[in-house]
Simulated scan of single mutants.
Amino acid sequence: MTVHLFGGVWSPSCANFALRRTIEYNASEFHPKVLQTVKTNFYVDDCLKSVPSADEAVYLVHQLKELLLRGGFRLNKWIFNCTEVIYSLLEEEWTKGLKCLNMNFDNLPCERALGMLWNVELDQFQFNIQVEPKPMTRRGLLSIVSFVYDLLGYTGPYVLRAKMLFQQLCRLNYGWDDTIPPEIAEQWGRWLKDIHLMRFVCGAGLVQETLASDTIYGQCILETLVK
């Protein structure tokens, strides 16, 4: 079998298997950083990678292209937050949003990355969540909370507030379609009002915090970017 259906539940695992086989067959000819990028920075057909300099990015991009082409993978739709790296590739290899820009005057676009918005110009992950009205019930609350897709967990502290409200409703034995009590409805309304404030920045440097209580427990590592 040489072709897999797009969207098949088995397709991601087959793609990852083929990526790793490509690494194994060509490991002796490429730098370990290139091999490690394929192992740890690909999520199905997306590759997200941050490096300290434009020169290192240019080297990595061309090495990745050469390596994965040997496995039948032609990498394209590239985008970077550095024009020097962008111009190191042919225009036909750029993502569609770059081709219509004037690089001297226009800001770099926002792109989808792992289900989130990446503001390329500012180098930020952002969340633009448009919530449709739902009934004030357990079912409605869960529907909206589940709508916040965040693979990397950046919205965790914010979404946690809504999950705690859902937990209260479960403890009070409210049914899926029972109207929630006024005190929880008020807190839910405040949560919805603040949903547009979610905006997160990713960078280097780590600050670690640990939280534990009767209600929740967890650990958070905050990332800061120093330029």
Score class of each variant (00 low, 15 high):
Phe42Thr: 06
His196Pro: 08
Leu141Gln: 07
Phe30Val: 01
Cys100Thr: 14
Leu48Met: 11
Thr224Ile: 12
Leu122Trp: 10
Glu183Gln: 09
Cys170Ile: 12
Cys47Asn: 04
Leu151Pro: 10
Gly189Thr: 06
Lys99Ala: 07
Ala212Asn: 06
Leu108Gly: 06
Arg112Ser: 11
Lys99Asp: 04
Gln168Tyr: 14
Trp10Glu: 14
Cys202Tyr: 10
Arg138Tyr: 03
Thr37His: 02
Gly203Trp: 14
Arg139Asp: 01
Arg70Ala: 08
Leu35Gln: 06
Lys193Phe: 13
Ser11Cys: 02
Gly203Thr: 08
Pro133Glu: 00
Leu169Thr: 09
Cys100Leu: 10
Asp106Arg: 03
Met136Thr: 13
Val85His: 03
Arg199Val: 11
Asn104Gln: 14
Val131Glu: 11
Met198Ile: 14
Glu93Thr: 03
Leu169Cys: 04
Val85Trp: 02
Gly140Pro: 09
Cys47Pro: 04
Ser50Thr: 13
Gln187Pro: 00
Val159Leu: 04
Met1His: 10
Val44Gly: 01
Tyr59Ile: 14
His62Asn: 13
Pro32Val: 06
Leu222Ser: 10
Ser146Gln: 12
Ser28Phe: 06
Glu66Asp: 15
Glu183Ala: 13
Lys134Thr: 15
Glu93Tyr: 09
Asn107Ala: 07
Asp106Pro: 01
Met164Ala: 12
Arg112Trp: 02
Arg70Ser: 08
His31Gly: 00
Asn128Cys: 10
Gly115Arg: 01
Ser143Phe: 04
Thr215Lys: 11
Gly175Arg: 12
Leu64Glu: 11
Ser53Gln: 07
Cys14Trp: 15
Asn104Gly: 03
Thr40Met: 07
Gln36Gly: 04
Leu89Gln: 01
Glu121Ala: 02
Leu5Phe: 13
Phe105Ile: 14
Ala27His: 09
Gln63Lys: 10
Gln168Asn: 13
Asp45Tyr: 11
Pro12Leu: 10
Ala27Cys: 05
Asp194His: 11
Lys77His: 05
Thr215Ile: 12
Asn107Cys: 06
Ser143Cys: 12
Ala185Met: 06
His196Ile: 07
Ser28Gly: 02
Met198Trp: 01
Leu68Asn: 11
